[in-house]
Design a binder for these strands. Sequence first.
DNA 1: CTGATCGTTTAGAATGAACTAAACGTAGTG
DNA 2: CACTACGTTTAGTTCATTCTAAACGATCAG
Lengths: 180, 180
Amino acid sequence: MENTLTHARENFIQGMSRISLFWGFPRAMGALFGAIYLSPEPISLDVLVEQSGVTKGAVSTNVRQLERLGMVYKHIRIGDRKNYYTAETDFWKIIKGILREREKQEFDTALKTVGLSLEMAQSSEISPEEAELAAFYQQRLGNIQRFFHKLDNLVAAVLTLDEFRLSAVQRLFGSEDTNS
Amino acid sequence: MENTLTHARENFIQGMSRISLFWGFPRAMGALFGAIYLSPEPISLDVLVEQSGVTKGAVSTNVRQLERLGMVYKHIRIGDRKNYYTAETDFWKIIKGILREREKQEFDTALKTVGLSLEMAQSSEISPEEAELAAFYQQRLGNIQRFFHKLDNLVAAVLTLDEFRLSAVQRLFGSEDTNS
DNA sequence: CTGATCGTTTAGAATGAACTAAACGTAGTG
DNA sequence: CACTACGTTTAGTTCATTCTAAACGATCAG
């Protein structure tokens, strides 16, 4: 336990918990990914329990989430009832997976809602004395709708980038490695 | 209440609540921004209470958050103790503000944590029999550190884009307005 | 068939954030 | 100087999510 590498791992796992939480995932998910990522061989559920400090049930649940997001992979060995996990090491791929998973879907419902309000504001049942307000609504709702479309397209565009083009884009803008 | 425009507004406010929640903000924040955004004139706190269905205390708190994020502006009228608010309509500016506010800071702490673990893994106090594992840790931690740096730079790059260049970038990739 | 060892599921507890309601302070008004 | 009309703060409650612990079911070994 007073091992330096163990400390490094524990610190990393803790950091990944924070990050996970920040991105709206359960704390345990980050911790588990951290542990799996720092395992040189496929890691089993019981070792995960020990290294991450998460109970068995939670490990079972959260590891499945990770799998669903394409962040880890399950390995089954013949004649061995344990499950072993390895981490996806292509982070860019992970990001893309997550964006696809949640951002996309949420964007659609957002657009649908704004669209509905916009339709209402364009409705013919609006009395003359409200015409001015209706025009204002139409303008504002139209603007936000266009913006969401733009953002949606931007995200979609980013999703088409592969690792190679990503670097290219970054070089395009700047300040690569200005520190340390 | 059976007014069409009112329905449009209520639907929009509700949608903004969802979005707010999704981005990790309180539900009330989105609702309030929605109400302010759809007000043709600077809107006062009591009207906000009425339109958003949020209580006075919460309005006071959340509206200040919105102000801090640069999403709304406070207007004071001489000889009038009420506060009036208007919405920032440049959404790109808003996004940038939010990114600066949270993403940036969180990225820094993430990088610091990974850096610390990496240092530990490079420590000289590591026994020979752990050398192999240490090398593995160094590799993995180095990789994730580089990735975070890349991502950080990417976000920073996006933050430098103004409305004009943004459109240019989007046109660069694609599918502008393929629907509706 | 029995026992042991897995992973999964579930019911309940704990945690933390956000909302409500009410008290508070303050600034204008008559 | 009261009185009223504001915005702010706070204490307590509600609510949703996540974690734990334990029961469960299934699979493999002997």
